[in-house]
Amino acid sequence: MIDYVILGWGDLAAASVFLVLNAGLSIWLQLGIERRLALSALRMVVQLLLVGLVLKAVFSIANPWLTALVALVMIGFAAREIRARQERPLAGIWGWSIGGGAMALAGLFITIYGLSVAIRPEPWWQPRYALPLLGMILGNTMTGVSLGLEALTGALKRERVAVEAQLLLGRTRAEAFRPQVRRALRAGFTPIINAMAATGVVSLPGMMTGQILSGVAPEEAVKYQLLIMFLIGGATGLGVLGAVLATARRMSDDRHRLRLDRLGPARPGR
């Protein structure tokens, strides 16, 4: 029941013509981006071709342990990305574990919930459903968590004097950190709120577009998209909340001090 246009390699080459044109323009106008443009395009081609092969193999083998292994690799890359996006992550293992841990817990919980309660494939871990779903949820949670953590550590560092002024008046760390924690939570939630508000009006979401292109009726594709957005929103919220609150706790101690010394060194080149 294949109801979509199969693409040939020639079609892809035709579609890439204008990207090549952009590189030509960059050389002509001396913008100096042709190298990075070419490299990232090449990287994308290699990564996607590889992922296509890996997914083909994983789908056909359909083994729960192999599926779990692929999920673990995805989580590892996302955790690394969260830390890489921080200007000054927490020193030591904390820089990895809090952001990555909150994202992994929220992402896995929501993915398994979505699979077992809403989509219900047979078996529930079937990689064709589980891995794309986990990927979309992890990607969005990762963005929210890294924005929230960057906002929190940046604000505590910039506003040290104001935070310590509250501590010195005998306020608890929860009271003294409240303005910075609230702003960090808002920063983490903003992308998903914006995405929900603009979706369908400004942009058709990628997954829905893909389903429509492959012949799914639009109203069915919309239902899938809504399901995904609900799950993404839930996971982002849980992940951001967990990561920001745990980091705020790590940035203080049981004597209610602000512990900026627990941040790692500033990372050059960012």
Binding site: E159, V161, A162, V163, E164, A165, Q166, L167, L168, L169, G170, P179, H256
Partner: peptide, 14 residues
């Protein structure tokens, strides 16, 4: 800190 109160040289405002 309410009993032994510090007023630093640079005051903070929130």
């Amino acid at each position: 800190r309410r009993t032994v109160a510090l007023v630093p040289a640079e005051s903070g405002w929130w």
